[in-house]
């Protein structure tokens, strides 16, 4: 069984995000870059499938030169090879363009399952896996917490508001994954050494034959609205007194209860 896992390099969750003064983007200075946490679940699941069924795990990643570290991390975890789509023209690629690039790169790779994180924690867009499935003309199941491959079918568990759905899909398919699926492994030292020698193909938009034109783009980045300073409730300094004061404020000032 051959598996493709798509990964993205994103700022760490503890990163402060500062908008550039002209609103053209975010200031990348001082940011620690990591593999998108949801993609880690995808890589882990790909490795588990490989352990169970055999086959190859290919990592596909769109990003600038620094994104190679994320590909190497996935290779160090145990993936076999990588494709790095690196082109300055794709720097602000939207979901459609990104998925077009991934689809073009994946077309040359044999696959039964494509795993993607349900969303990247930078743009929070949550579209690429779905668009990729549409462009490849294969089914998709999104935001799942359990994946079972059985012959030419995959069965997944998808939490929705107030329920969980068990969905079956034919293969090949795109499966987008979320937290709760597995515990991603750490790369071992021998894994890290081996990863350095694993093959990574680097491709640009021209090599993939895709257009870099975006269907949607962020015209302007804006810092979040500042919250007005709040008040610390002192009341009569007993827990009961403070609780009574908060309840009163929520009722009379905020009018939310």
């Amino acid at each position: 069984m051959n598996i493709v896992a798509c990964v993205k390099q994103v700022p760490d969750t503890e990163a402060q995000i500062k908008v550039k003064p002209d609103g053209s983007g975010i200031d990348e200075g001082g940011i620690k870059w990591v593999m998108n946490p949801y993609d880690e679940f995808g890589v882990e699941e790909a490795l588990k499938m490989k352990e169970k069924f055999g086959g190859d795990v290919t990592i596909v990643c769109l990003g600038p030169a620094r994104a190679m570290e994320t590909i190497r991390t996935a290779l160090a975890m145990g993936a076999d090879k990588g494709i790095h789509i690196n082109d300055p023209a794709l720097e602000n690629a939207d979901a459609y363009t990104t998925a077009s690039a991934l689809a073009a790169a994946i077309k040359g790779v044999p696959y039964d399952v494509i795993l993607c994180g349900q969303r990247a924690i930078d743009d929070d867009s949550g579209q690429v896996g779905s668009v990729l499935a549409e462009l490849l003309g294969i089914p998709q199941v999104t935001v799942v917490t359990k994946v079972d491959v059985d012959g030419q079918k995959v069965k997944v568990v998808r939490p929705i508001e107030g329920a969980q759905l068990v969905i079956e899909s034919s293969l090949p398919a795109v499966v987008t994954v979320t937290k709760g699926l597995n515990e991603p492994r750490y790369a071992s030292l021998p894994g890290i050494m081996k990863a350095k020698k694993k093959p990574v193909d680097v491709k640009d938009a021209a090599a993939l034959g895709i257009s870099a034109d975006a269907k949607a783009k962020v015209g302007k980045f804006i810092p979040p609205p500042a919250r007005p300073p709040g008040k610390i409730i002192c009341a009569d300094d007993t827990p009961e007194g403070k609780a009574a004061e908060v309840a009163k404020l929520l009722r009379e000032e905020a009018k939310v209860i």
């Binding site: 743009d123 269907k215 949607a216 962020v218 980045f221």
Partner: peptide
Amino acid sequence: VAVRPMYAGKCFGEVVFNAAPAM
């Protein structure tokens, strides 16, 4: 124009569109 939180709300983006429908 669509306004949306990015980085889980650490910043916001004003999105403009070059294709129809704008979604």
